[in-house]
Computed example of a mutant assay.
Amino acid sequence: MSAMRDAIAAELDNAVRNIQALAADAAMQALLEQAVGLCTGALRDGRKLLFAGNGGSAADAQHWAGELVSRFYYDRPGLAAIALTTDSSILTAIGNDYGYDYTFARQVEALGQAGDVFIAISTSGNSPNILRAADAARARGIRVIGFTGASGGKLAPLADICFCMPSSETPRIQEGHELIGHLLCALVEAEMYPRNAG
């Protein structure tokens, strides 16, 4: 077997073990059930879900918001979700006027309302702009769902619910985030608009 195939097999094995750890984690499953309840409760009350992250986590924020606004498994009415990572004019204005650490907090202040849910994604759990946004959310009565790595970082104590992936490796953390994020979208969709409802 070539060195490249060895590397491929090792990476796939690491990813599989990471997913198996998640599948065996009953506490993580209970947190997911709670997170679905937070999100559907907000949506049923006419509130919205706000998503934010940096780098690859910014892509997750946009991806998951898109799954809810458009569709996940099937056609149904759109669900109120906003990625705070997408408006380059807002991001650069805040970065220029207040500093990068405020890119999401300022948007939470402007767009967030009590009863909303803020989904904060940070592989380290220590991204300053995510932490400031979580603080801003809590100050406004907005519940916080965190996505982090194994340590939870500084984000974990700021979150009502925190998904701490069973890894300290960024790729494994991100793969876990993607799986849990997809489950969250699928379950929120199914709870809000059951596929077989009359």
Rank of each mutant, 00 (worst) to 15 (best):
M1F: 11
A3D: 10
R5K: 15
R5E: 15
D6T: 15
A10G: 15
A10V: 15
E11N: 14
A15I: 03
V16M: 12
V16S: 10
N18L: 12
I19N: 12
L22S: 03
A23E: 05
D25F: 08
A30F: 02
L31N: 06
Q34R: 12
V36S: 00
G37M: 07
T40W: 01
T40D: 00
R44Q: 06
D45R: 10
G46I: 06
R47W: 03
K48G: 03
L50S: 02
L50G: 00
F51S: 03
A52R: 02
G53C: 09
S57T: 05
A58M: 09
D60T: 15
W64K: 07
A65D: 09
G66Y: 15
G66Q: 07
G66I: 12
E67A: 10
D75E: 15
D75K: 13
R76C: 12
R76G: 11
P77I: 03
G78W: 01
L79W: 03
A81Q: 04
T85C: 07
T86E: 10
D87Q: 10
D87P: 07
S88A: 14
S89L: 04
I94N: 03
Y98L: 05
T103C: 06
F104R: 14
F104C: 10
E109S: 14
A110C: 13
L111E: 12
L111S: 09
Q113F: 14
A114K: 14
A114P: 15
G115M: 09
V117E: 04
F118I: 03
F118E: 00
I121K: 02
S122A: 13
S124H: 13
S127R: 09
S127I: 03
R132N: 12
A134P: 11
D135M: 08
G141T: 14
R143V: 08
V144Y: 03
G149E: 15
A150K: 13
S151K: 14
G153Q: 12
G153M: 13
L155H: 11
F163T: 04
P166K: 02
S168D: 15
E169V: 10
T170R: 14
T170Q: 12
P171T: 11
R172H: 13
Q174D: 07
Q174S: 12
H177A: 06
L179H: 11
L179R: 05
L179E: 01
I180K: 02
G181T: 01
H182W: 09
H182I: 10
A186I: 00
E189K: 05
P194M: 01
G198K: 09
